[in-house]
Amino acid sequence: MRYLAFFRGINVGGKNIVKMKELRELFTELGFVNVRSYIQSGNLLFTSDKELNELSKLVTDAFVKKFGFSVPIIYRTKSEMLSMVQSLPFTVEELAEVESSDSQIAHLYVYFSGKEIAEQELSYAGERAVVRSKNIYYLTEKSIRLSKLTSQLNRLSDELTARNWKTILKLVDLLNE
C-alpha cells in the first residue's frame, strides 16, 4: 500500500532538524520501498505491505532511536489523500474570492489529525474551517500567520499538522506516479 507520512514540527525555526536524506535512509532501512520526500517540512511517501498500526510503531521507535526525539507522525493512504482532495468543502467562487485579496500567500490549508474529530464548522472574521473526520479544511483571506482561528483548531486534537493546498496537490501527484 502507498502511504504518506506527515512529520509534525521538524525543521521549523531551527529546531528538531532532520535531513530528508537521513529520513529516507531510515525508511529504506526499515524495509519500505519507493521512499521519497517532498520539501524539508517532513512529507515522506513510501510503500509497505505492513498495516498502519504495525508500521507506525516501527517508524516511531526507529525515529526516536536515530534522531533522539519524538514528533507526532500522521499517516494517510493514497486513497485517503485522493478522497480528501475530492471532498474539498469550498466552492471555486469562495477560493477565487480569498485569493483575489492577496495572490502572494497561501489561503487554503488542510490540517491532518491522527484521530477522528467531531464534524463541525468554525469561522472568525475572514477565516473558515470545516472539520471532516480526520481532516480540517482551513480557508483564510489573510496569511495563516495572522490567524485568530488556528489556535482553536489546534485545540481540537493534539496530533495536528498542516500543509498548504499547493503542497497537498503536489503530494497527490507524487502518490499517483
Rank of each mutant, 00 (worst) to 15 (best):
A118S: 14
L88T: 12
L58E: 14
G68E: 11
I74Q: 00
E159V: 06
L160H: 01
L55N: 08
V71E: 05
K115H: 14
K78G: 09
P89I: 07
L174G: 04
F69D: 03
E119T: 13
S87R: 14
T161W: 00
G114E: 05
W165P: 00
Y124L: 15
S83G: 11
V85H: 03
H107I: 08
R132M: 14
D102Y: 08
G114S: 10
K134H: 13
K65E: 15
I168S: 00
N154G: 06
V64H: 09
F69S: 04
I73S: 03
D173V: 07
T140P: 06
L171P: 02
E119I: 07
V172D: 03
K115D: 14
Y111I: 03
E94C: 11
E116A: 11
F69P: 00
E119F: 12
L160I: 02
E121D: 12
V110C: 11
R155N: 13
E127S: 06
G126I: 09
V98S: 06
M84E: 04
T77S: 15
T167R: 04
P89L: 06
Y75L: 11
Y111M: 08
S87F: 09
V92Y: 10
S70A: 14
S147M: 03
Y75N: 02
V131F: 03
I144R: 07
A162H: 00
E80W: 06
K134W: 02
K166I: 05
N135W: 06
V110G: 01
L174Y: 10
L122Q: 09
N154V: 05
I168E: 01
